[in-house]
Simulated scan of single mutants.
Amino acid sequence: MTTLLVVIGLTALVLSLLLPFAVKPLLRRLGVIDIPNTRSSHSTVVLRGMGLAVSLAILVALVLSLATGLVAVDRSLILVILVLVAAASALGWIEDFRGLSVRVRLATQLLIGAVGTAALATTIDDSSYWWIPVGAIAVATYINAANFMDGINGISGMHGSVVGLFYAWAGVLADQLWLTVAGLVVAAAFAGFLPWNLGRGFVFLGDVGSYLLGASIAAIAVTGLLAGVYLEYLLSPVLIYLADTFTTFLRRARRGERLSTAHRQHVYQRLTDTGLSHVQVSVLVSVLSALTGAAGFVLATAPAPLAVSASLFAAVVVALYLYSPRIFRAAARRRVAAGAC
Rank of each mutant, 00 (worst) to 15 (best):
T274M: 10
L288P: 08
G224C: 00
L226A: 06
S236L: 02
G224N: 04
R270M: 13
S309R: 13
P237V: 15
R270I: 11
Y233C: 07
V267N: 13
S277A: 01
S260I: 13
Q280A: 15
T274Y: 06
Q269R: 04
S260T: 15
A294E: 06
T292G: 11
L226Q: 00
L250C: 02
Y230W: 14
A300H: 07
A310D: 11
G224K: 03
G228S: 03
R251G: 09
R254H: 02
L231G: 03
Y268W: 09
A295V: 10
G296I: 05
G293P: 09
Y241E: 01
F297N: 15
V287G: 05
F246V: 15
G296Q: 08
R255T: 11
V283H: 05
R258W: 10
L226I: 03
F246P: 13
L231E: 08
S289N: 04
Y233V: 06
T248K: 09
L306A: 14
R252W: 04
H278T: 07
E257N: 12
A307D: 06
A295K: 02
F246G: 12
A310R: 09
E232Q: 14
R255M: 13
V283Q: 01
R254Y: 00
V287W: 08
L225C: 04
L259P: 09
T272L: 04
L250R: 05
R270K: 10
Q280Y: 11
A304W: 13
S286A: 15
A302K: 12
G296L: 03
F246H: 14
V267G: 09
S260M: 11
S260R: 13
G293F: 10
T247D: 12
L271F: 05
V283Y: 01
T274H: 04
